[in-house]
Simulated scan of single mutants.
Amino acid sequence: MRRMMGTILALMLLALPAAYAVQPDEIMSDPVKESRARDLSRELRCMVCQNQSIDDSDAPLARDLRLLVRERIAAGDSNSQVLDFLVARYGEFVLLRPRFERQTMLLWLLAPVLLIGGGLALWLQIRRRARSGADLPAPLTPEEKARLAALMSDEPKSS
């Protein structure tokens, strides 16, 4: 019981910063629009924190961006129009997951290419080792064979 309470407390403490990032005065009265605003703000990077979405950040710039998203939604913009507006204003860096375009192709493709290349190199190395027989011990010399035969032919002495 004590362990479970500790786990619940730890989870609540982890969720605490995200719970207080969006201030009550920012929340829209229409729950559908507020849900859209929250979804969009989870996709946008805080330019101050850089590893948090603006939905999770308490930075003043993140607050300004959350308010700007809500203003654009209240003005009737679609989700893509809001994102396009913010990208035009702040650049592609404002998106937590950049779009797949010519400029970001290297960002999207480098990890899979490196993973496939590493797997291929490992596979080739394993094949090369299996073919060369490097893991096999060298055959016994005639002297070693004779000594082994002598050791095996000796009967244990009884004391």
Rank of each mutant, 00 (worst) to 15 (best):
M1V: 15
R2F: 10
R2N: 14
R3M: 08
R3P: 02
R3K: 02
M4C: 01
M4L: 01
G6P: 08
G6C: 14
G6V: 14
T7H: 06
T7C: 10
A10I: 11
A10D: 11
L11Y: 09
L11R: 12
M12C: 11
L14N: 10
A15H: 07
L16F: 12
P17S: 05
A18L: 12
A18S: 12
A19S: 06
Y20D: 13
A21T: 07
Q23P: 05
Q23W: 04
D25M: 06
D25R: 10
D25K: 02
E26A: 09
I27A: 06
M28G: 03
S29G: 08
D30M: 01
D30G: 02
D30L: 01
P31Y: 03
V32R: 11
K33T: 12
S35W: 09
S35H: 11
R38E: 13
R38S: 06
D39K: 10
L40Q: 01
S41Y: 02
S41M: 13
S41H: 03
R42Y: 07
R42A: 14
E43T: 15
E43C: 08
R45I: 08
M47A: 14
V48D: 15
C49G: 06
Q50R: 08
Q50M: 13
N51R: 15
Q52I: 06
S53G: 14
D55N: 09
D55V: 05
S57Y: 02
L61F: 08
L65I: 07
R66E: 00
L67W: 05
V69K: 09
V69T: 02
R70V: 08
E71H: 14
R72F: 11
R72T: 05
A74R: 08
A75D: 13
D77A: 02
S80A: 05
Q81V: 06
Q81H: 07
L83I: 14
D84V: 04
D84S: 02
F85K: 10
V87Y: 03
V87I: 15
R89N: 09
Y90R: 04
G91K: 04
G91D: 03
L95M: 02
L95H: 04
R97K: 03
R99M: 10
E101Y: 05
E101V: 00
Q103F: 11
Q103L: 14
Q103E: 15
Q103G: 07
T104E: 13
M105C: 11
L109W: 09
L110W: 12
A111N: 09
V113I: 01
L114F: 05
L115F: 09
I116S: 11
G117V: 00
G118R: 03
G118T: 00
G119E: 14
L120F: 12
A121P: 00
A121E: 04
L122E: 07
I126E: 13
R128S: 15
R128A: 14
R129M: 03
R129F: 05
R129H: 01
S132P: 04
G133A: 00
G133K: 00
D135H: 05
L136M: 01
L136A: 13
P137F: 15
P137L: 10
P137Q: 03
P137N: 00
A138E: 15
A138C: 09
P139A: 15
L140G: 00
P142L: 02
P142G: 00
E143Y: 02
E144S: 13
A146H: 10
R147F: 05
L148S: 06
L151G: 07
E155H: 03
P156E: 11
P156C: 04
S159M: 03
S159T: 06
